[in-house]
């Protein structure tokens, strides 16, 4: 397991995550076979060292099975307009059904993502029609943060709290 940076997420990253970005989750099972999944919302906890990512219950079976065997998780967050991207790597601390009050948050998050993708020609309704409820809340500690914007610097570990 990678050592925890224990660096709190910066205001900039929290604001970046809050605007409705593309979210992809990577996990792997005990035999190290990976799986990808599109998530529909993310929320950074008050301690800035943990986050909860919301997974559509209907599409997340592999992911949930994976993290039961291996709690390591990678979450790719990306802004489709300028491809600014980050990857959070962490350890799952809790998995369970998202509480009812998360539904409105997830729907608002998807709407934000839809507004962004609409600019590049994706009809708004396609994105808001992504399956998203019921949802699984996957809580994880953010152990590492990497710059993932395409280019020569992609993959650089962001050690400090600022971007």
């Amino acid at each position: 397991m990678a050592p925890s940076t224990q660096t709190p997420l910066s205001d900039e990253l929290i604001a970046f995550l809050a605007q409705g970005v593309s979210l992809l989750v990577g996990t792997c099972d005990a035999s190290r076979t990976p799986h990808t999944l599109r998530a529909t919302g993310v929320r950074v906890h008050d301690d800035r060292r943990h986050a909860t990512v919301y997974l559509p219950a209907v599409t997340s079976r592999n992911t949930v099975t994976d993290v039961a065997a291996n709690p390591r998780v990678a979450v790719l967050v990306s802004q489709p307009l300028d491809h600014r991207s980050f990857q959070m790597k962490g350890t799952v601390t809790r998995v369970g059904p998202a509480p009812p009050e998360a539904q409105a948050f997830i729907e608002e998050y998807l709407a934000g993502f839809a507004r962004v993708l609409e600019v590049v020609g994706m009809p708004y309704e396609v994105v808001t029609n992504l399956s998203h409820w019921p949802s699984v809340a996957l809580e994880f500690s953010v152990d590492d943060l990497y710059l993932q914007t395409p280019g020569p610097g992609a993959g650089a570990r962001l050690a400090g709290p600022s971007l």
């Binding site: 990577g26 792997c28 190290r32 990976p34 990808t36 990857q87 790597k89």
Partner: peptide, 18 residues
């Protein structure tokens, strides 16, 4: 397209492919 891989110690990585 997005790709997920895993290191030998089971740490996943996910990224877009150009």
């Amino acid at each position: 397209c997005a790709i997920a891989t895993a290191s030998a110690d089971g740490t996943p990585n996910i990224t877009y492919l150009s």
